[in-house]
Structure formats: structure tokens, C-alpha cells
């Protein structure tokens, strides 16, 4: 079963193009159906031989062109997704692509949007700036790179957003000084969006928090391997109320095992989204595999439908 009812499309590579010596764009379209709309900041997942890889869409969300474009930097890792895309994916080929997701959406309520990009971290901001230009909202881009020639979409951005785009190609210390100065001088109600290498994001998120930006005004996105449990293992569960001990087989969920044993657990979605089948964890370690519980709640709760114990655990329904 596909855990989140995500739809997959067989998409054809329409064209590829180098935008810098190491960054290449790929445009995908479907030959049989219209592709779903997406919002600014969305990404798609590509099924590649080495696993699923996520890339931000750089299209204009309001253009309605029924194609998806991504920009990929070849990070050069042998056997990596980016190297595979650069060397082996050519126009005319078909790739399996999941429908767009969005964990980096534009916050409509912002008085002003401030984008902080480093390197290939520019990609989500391309759809955001396109969208905000249509809706007439106030934004600025602060884009750090090593040089103009290695800065993806440098001339396009400069031309399209002459007043809003600011580039930083100087020495690191100088860059930091200037960017920090920008962050210190913003109006109340500004939302900050940060994307780039981990160290860059960590630095500026900490800096913004230090300046007193509310947590809900600071947004960032990092792509991580999805948390899906790859090879589910069997485990043992003791349920305290009924004092029953049972085994959950590798091909079975905790929820299914509890129900089979006659232990009543309310449930609904069975995909880790609704939170109905939450149970208390009294003992043991748990592999969480859902998107519902907060980090705090994960310390003492789990969702029986998708999360699993390791070895032996004790729960209370």
C-alpha cells in the first residue's frame, strides 16, 4: 500500500538544460493527463534507482502549464541521485514522479517575505517569487553564491526582479556581516525563508531567533530521506490493561496485531495522519513512521497503524 495515498505519474523528460557548469534543469510532462496544480515552495519526489529524491519545483504556480521543472546540482557523489540525473537522464526518457508536496509554503499573512538563499538553495524561491509577483505582495531575495557565473539563474533573476534581488558574492565574513545587517532591519510581520546548505541554514535560523523573530515567522526546508521503515521487523508487545503479550509479524502492523488479539483500539486513516489509533508507550524503543505526533508526544505515545516497536515494548491502549 502506498502509505499516504500519493499519486505517481510516469513523466517524460521534455528537455534538459545547463544553467551553470554544475547545475542542470529537467522539465517533465505527462503524455496522457494534466498534472495537478501546486503551490509556491512545492517539491516533487523522483523515483531513481538509488531511492526517492526530492527536488523543489521552479515553475510559476500560476502559469498552469502542466509541466514540472527542477534544477539539480551535480554534487558529484558516486552513485548519488544528482550524478545519476546529470549523466543518465536524457530527454525522451520516462521517470516516475510523485504528485507535488509542500512543506515550505508561502505564508500569505506575512507583511513582507524575505528569502535567504545560498547556492542551489535558490530553487524553492523561484516559484515563490513568481507567485508573489502575480499577487503583488512585498518580497526581497538575498542570494549568496561564490560568483556570478556559478550562481544559478543569476541573469534571469536580475532581469525579472531588479528591485527585489540582492546578490552576495564577496568573502564569507563580509557576506555574513551584510546579511546579518539585513536581518536586523526588518519590519514587524516579516517572514524569513531560508534555504541552502545545512550550516548556512543553522547559522541564520539561530541568528534570526536571537534577534527575536517569532519561531512561526522563520521557515526553512531541508530534504531528508523519507522516514518510511524500509525493512519492517517483527517485535513483541505487552499491553498493560489486558496484560496480554503478543507478537507483531514483519508483514503486520501493531494495530492489526492488537485487533487480531481482540484488543479494541479506535482507528481511522491507518496511514499515520489522523492520530486516532494513538497508544501510550510505557517501555521500549519505537520507530516512529508518521507525521502526526509532535516530538514531545513521541516520547510517550505512538500511532499503532504505522509505527513499530524495536525488540520488545510495553504499551497501554
Amino acid at each position: 500500500m502506498n502509505t499516504f495515498m500519493q499519486k505517481y505519474y510516469q513523466l517524460k523528460v521534455q528537455k534538459t538544460e545547463y544553467v551553470t557548469p554544475t547545475i542542470k534543469t529537467f522539465t517533465f510532462a505527462s503524455e496522457s493527463e494534466k498534472l495537478p496544480h501546486f503551490g509556491a515552495g512545492s517539491h516533487i519526489s523522483l523515483k531513481l534507482p538509488m531511492g526517492k529524491r526530492q527536488y523543489s519545483l521552479i515553475n510559476d504556480p500560476l502559469q498552469d502549464e502542466s509541466e514540472y521543472t527542477i534544477a539539480v546540482k551535480n554534487v558529484g557523489t558516486e552513485g548519488g541521485g544528482s550524478s545519476f540525473l546529470h549523466h543518465h537522464v536524457k530527454p525522451g526518457e520516462t521517470i516516475e514522479v510523485a504528485s507535488p508536496e509542500n512543506y515550505f509554503q508561502i505564508r500569505t499573512e506575512a507583511r513582507r517575505h524575505l528569502f535567504l538563499a545560498a547556492g542551489i538553495g535558490i530553487t524553492p524561491f523561484l516559484s515563490m517569487m513568481a507567485f508573489l509577483s502575480h499577487t503583488g505582495q512585498s518580497f526581497d531575495l538575498y542570494y549568496a553564491g561564490s560568483s556570478a557565473s556559478e550562481c544559478a539563474f543569476y541573469s534571469t533573476i536580475k532581469k525579472r526582479y531588479p528591485d527585489q534581488a540582492h546578490f552576495y558574492f564577496m568573502e564569507r565574513e563580509q557576506k555574513e556581516k551584510e546579511l546579518q545587517n539585513v536581518l536586523r532591519n526588518q519590519c514587524i510581520g516579516t517572514h524569513i525563508y531560508i534555504c541552502g546548505p545545512s550550516a548556512f541554514m543553522d547559522h541564520y535560523i539561530t541568528y534570526c531567533k536571537g534577534l527575536g523573530y517569532p519561531d512561526e515567522n522563520i521557515h526553512s526546508e531541508r530534504f531528508r530521506p523519507s522516514s518510511t521503515i524500509q525493512n519492517p521487523k517483527a517485535f513483541q508487545v505487552t499491553e498493560e490493561q489486558s496484560a496480554k503479550t503478543l507478537y507483531v509479524n514483519s508483514n503486520q502492523s501493531l494495530l492489526e496485531a492488537l485487533i487480531d488479539e481482540g484488543i479494541t483500539v479506535p482507528y481511522a486513516c491507518r496511514m499515520g495522519v489522523c492520530g486516532t489509533c494513538e497508544v501510550e508507550v510505557c517501555n521500549g524503543s519505537v520507530l516512529h513512521n508518521e507525521t502526526f505526533l509532535t516530538e514531545e508526544e513521541k516520547k510517550e505515545k505512538m500511532l499503532a497503524c504505522v509505527s513499530r516497536g524495536e525488540g520488545a515494548i510495553t504499551i497501554k491502549v
Partner: peptide, 14 residues
């Protein structure tokens, strides 16, 4: 709160 959180996590086009 839980229902609110559930809604906030509904995925696009779903």
C-alpha cells in the same frame, strides 16, 4: 487540538 493538527497536515489535492 488533534483535529486541528490533522487538518493542518492534509496534503495538497487530497
Amino acid at each position: 487540538e488533534k483535529v486541528g493538527r490533522f487538518i493542518s497536515r492534509i496534503r495538497p489535492n487530497t
